[in-house]
């Protein structure tokens, strides 16, 4: 059963991710008073990328991107297969490290700065993701995604702080303003395209697919907070995603120190308070 879910993820996540990307661009356009591209635009872009010439700065950069794609897909598959959530997080980090290495490999100024920033973002995001997993464990007594998803406890009630913290870094992970520091989906930014500057054609296509996998995985993570009622969960995911788009269109990009400091502060305050509260409640229940 779990393998079927994992396979379904591997097959369907790119489709869903691409659709979400298309809808995202459409909504963004509407928010800016434009018509926007077709819903399927993301797939056209992908198709185009695979029709282009293969251009590299150094051959090794493609290898890192391939690893990035494989491990993002793997971590998502583990997640949807109901695996151990900590292991999923570690695989997810591994994947991102590969993306960063790919950016470093080209020895290009823009992708280099992008890589450094991507690492800072990684550093900013990691604690709350781990703490969220720990919080889920404290409530459901299991690290397995399958068990967490199957539990009847409304996690969001017990983990509001961790959820808020997770939302904060979700903006970073979805590469949305104000935290689109290392690369962004928008056309212009000061680092050209940050980590993806030196990737083109099919390689860039692979990164795009990996992004889609990633987006679905992250939304899956959001789902866990609401998993006691699938309907509410889906509605919550939609609201949260639209909210992220709104944030994206209303905020200017911040500097990396602010991104790092604020996300750590949010993690420290909300995360620790939430965990401490859980701990105390747990003590009473015993």
């Amino acid at each position: 059963m779990s393998i079927i879910y994992a396979l379904l993820f591997l097959l369907l996540a790119p489709v869903a991710g691409g659709l979400i990307a298309g809808i995202d661009r459409r909504i963004t356009a509407r928010m800016q008073g434009r018509v926007g591209p077709p819903i399927l635009q993301a797939f056209y872009d992908l198709g185009k990328l695979f029709e282009k010439e293969k251009v590299v700065v150094t051959n090794s950069q493609n290898f890192y991107v391939l690893c990035y794609l494989v491990f993002i897909a793997l971590s998502g598959a583990l997640f949807f297969g109901g695996g151990d959530i900590l292991l999923v997080i570690f695989a997810f980090t591994l994947a991102h490290v590969f993306l960063v290495l790919g950016a470093y490999a080209s020895n290009s100024p823009y992708s280099h700065v992008g890589a450094e920033r991507e690492l800072i973002q990684l550093m900013a995001c990691e604690p709350i993701i781990i703490l969220a997993a720990v919080g889920m464990y404290m409530v459901t007594k299991s690290f397995y995604v399958a068990d967490i998803a199957a539990s009847n406890i409304p996690l969001i009630v017990f983990l509001p702080g961790l959820f808020a913290g997770f939302l904060y870094i979700l903006t970073m992970k979805l590469r949305k303003s104000p935290f689109d520091l290392s690369t962004s989906h928008h056309a212009h930014q000061e680092l050209v395209k940050g980590v993806t500057t030196e990737f083109s054609g099919p390689t860039l296509g692979c990164i795009e697919i990996a992004h889609w996998y990633e987006a679905i995985f992250l939304l899956g993570f959001v789902y866990l907070f609401f998993s006691w009622s699938p309907v509410i969960a889906v509605i919550a995911i939609i609201i949260i995603y639209v909210f992220e788009i709104l944030i994206d269109n209303t905020f200017a990009r911040v500097k990396w120190p602010l991104a790092l400091k604020s996300s750590w502060l949010v993690t420290a305050v909300l995360g620790i308070l939430n965990l401490a509260a859980l701990y105390i409640i747990g003590g009473f229940l015993k």
């Binding site: 293969k54 251009v55 590299v56 700065v57 100024p109 823009y110 992708s111 050209v192 030196e198």
Partner: peptide, 9 residues
């Protein structure tokens, strides 16, 4: 068959 170019500067 990958064309090599310089980093973007």
């Amino acid at each position: 068959d990958h064309r090599q170019v310089k980093p973007y500067m």
